[in-house]
Nucleic acid binder design. Structure first.
Lengths: 339, 339
DNA sequence: CTGAAAGCGCTTACAG
DNA sequence: CTGAAAGCGCTTACAG
């Protein structure tokens, strides 16, 4: 395999010129640059990763720590891992995958051995030991998600609270005054992922502010659990005309099935918004209005912020990605009812 | 951060002794080893990854290339990525994640820059460009899955053909002579993932051999597609008493729902085997007999084979992991019927 | 059982 | 605009 000396010889320059030509860290004569480029191409030269790390004290690697407990919804999770990886690659960074079973130990290891230039933390919990670790580790990092204690951290995430408010506002604008929320299964809230809580509290608060009657139900396991949750909503809100779903695809599918079985038509009898969904709601029957959870949005921004930290000091802060609303016809103006 | 010189000084030995003590590549005096261990612990020393790569020409990193097209079933896919990562960690290897958008380019890059000691290829297609790339790249590698052309490759995978045979044999042993197979949606076979084909052809061949009447149906999209596939099976096999499902969880769930709706009781009216499933079938209603697809099985073995290649030449070959059968009560002896 | 030293292939001041 | 050289922190023959 060709090394930098081979390239230098072929181009008739010194190795430092080759290095600078490739890094762009100083200006190179037009003619010289071309000769070097040709030599690189011809020899198929790629800088040795280890040598680069050692000499340059930059690894061009980001570590991504992704927990994956039994309750994480794999499709969404996978989407985030992928989005981070692709974003990192766009900055010419590779991604090293750290799994849950060595969450904090992995961070320490990677930092101490200088294996990575920075860290991306995925699916942070409200009370996440990795967050504490980041503060002591002295490596740039970005957290995707908002833990309870964000002190000293750079965090990026979809604004779940605002997403809840947005879905309610849309429904309220269409005259709905009685709106239910179908959430995740209870264990999701217990396990401590941060975003379900933010959405739910955003929903409750926005309903209060808008003066809308509301109720929240969390489905148990399987279609039966979804049925029970819908029963609960209708029991609390007999006049319910709007439904916000913040849960994973199988639950939303079950809910739509069940509504159809009950003869509830969307949107004629019930207007439905799918909120913070990472899957495609346009293939649902009927297609649902959606506030999409786009992994790439948070991940690209998260990686950008990480890259920036490599060259400049950045103050710890939280960045919330504003939610977007996509209409698909599942929300209609409420029919005249005695209120 | 402490380096090897700091450790050597603290322990009162030379850096080479420290290095050997840590790598275990030559015997060290009991006393000396302890002093070094203490110094390492006290200083929190970790070898610099870049220096290790450069000097040792070993990176302690495996690259994992994982395609993720729209049709890959994320939960299963994620399970394999995780299983490989954990297996690699158990050999003290880290995992670098290569995504589909730079499948072959990523392999070249990683090989040329000596970023990884070996490569694991996940979810290989029948005709996979990555397989060809492996042959020219000159880096040890293991393929999880069996491409059409396995020439020069080390491949590991569950024996899907034998799994199909095993499920049929079980049903046949219980007297079933008319057995349907519910497969993946057609596009899965078209896209070229290798294992669905192996299972299906194994099913067809085994049915012939066992002298069992059989039919295969591939479901279209959604519950309606599953319904249609079941209709197809019953049309071809009006006396069907056994069903083998080789498809993802949502389809199997729909199929069980639909059978219940039709008044078909499992296992009284129909014996069902869930084959090569990577999800938990014990929570199904009813729980299903299953031949599990255990990601860890193939991945651990794949990583082992990769580690072996680092120290010894290994002849290219295919290793098939034998399927296991788990009873859960969804297969019953066929009722007396006019055959 | 242990040490002194070369060398891995880069990056980056230092010089001109 | 370019080059000669130090040095990054290890591993591993070579020597004893």
């Amino acid at each position: 395999m060709a090394n930098i000396h081979d390239v230098a010889k072929a181009a008739g320059v010194s190795i430092s010129t080759v290095s600078y030509a490739l890094s762009g860290k100083r200006s190179i004569g037009e003619e010289t640059r071309k000769r070097i480029q040709d030599a690189v191409r011809e020899l198929g030269y790629r800088p040795n990763a280890g040598a680069r790390m050692l000499a340059g004290t930059k690894t061009h690697i980001f570590a991504v720590t992704a927990p994956l407990h039994a309750d994480t919804y794999a499709p969404a999770h996978m989407a985030f891992v992928l989005a981070v990886t692709q974003a990192a690659r766009s900055f010419d960074y590779d991604v090293l995958l750290l799994t849950e079973d060595e969450a904090t130990a992995g961070l320490q290891r990677v930092a101490a051995s200088r294996l990575a230039d920075g860290i991306i933390v995925l699916d942070v919990a409200k009370d996440d030991e990795r967050a504490q670790m980041l503060r002591s580790i002295g490596l740039p990092s970005t957290v995707i998600g908002i833990p309870d204690d964000t002190h000293g951290l750079v965090c990026v995430d979809l604004d779940f609270r605002q997403a809840a408010e947005l879905s309610l506002t849309r429904l309220a604008e269409h005259g709905h005054r009685s709106i239910g929320m179908l959430g995740h299964p209870p264990r999701i809230y217990e396990r401590g992922s941060n975003f379900p809580h933010r959405f739910r509290s955003g929903f409750v608060d926005a309903a209060d502010e808008l003066g809308v009657r509301s109720a929240v139900a969390l489905p148990g396991h399987g279609p039966a659990g979804v049925r029970a949750a819908l029963d609960e909503l209708y029991a609390q809100l007999p006049d319910m005309t709007g439904l916000v779903m913040n849960c994973e695809e199988p639950i939303q599918t079950s809910a739509l099935d069940e509504l159809a079985d009950r003869g509830v038509t969307v949107p004629d009898d019930l207007s439905v918004v799918s909120a913070c969904s990472s899957f495609d709601t346009s293939r649902f029957a009927p297609p649902l209005d959606v506030i999409p959870l786009v992994a790439a949005d948070s991940c690209v921004r998260g990686v950008e912020l990480l890259v920036q930290q490599l060259t400049a000091e950045i103050d710890p802060h939280i960045e919330l990605v504003p939610p977007r609303y996509i209409e698909r016809g599942s929300v209609a103006t409420v029919r005249a009812v005695a209120s």
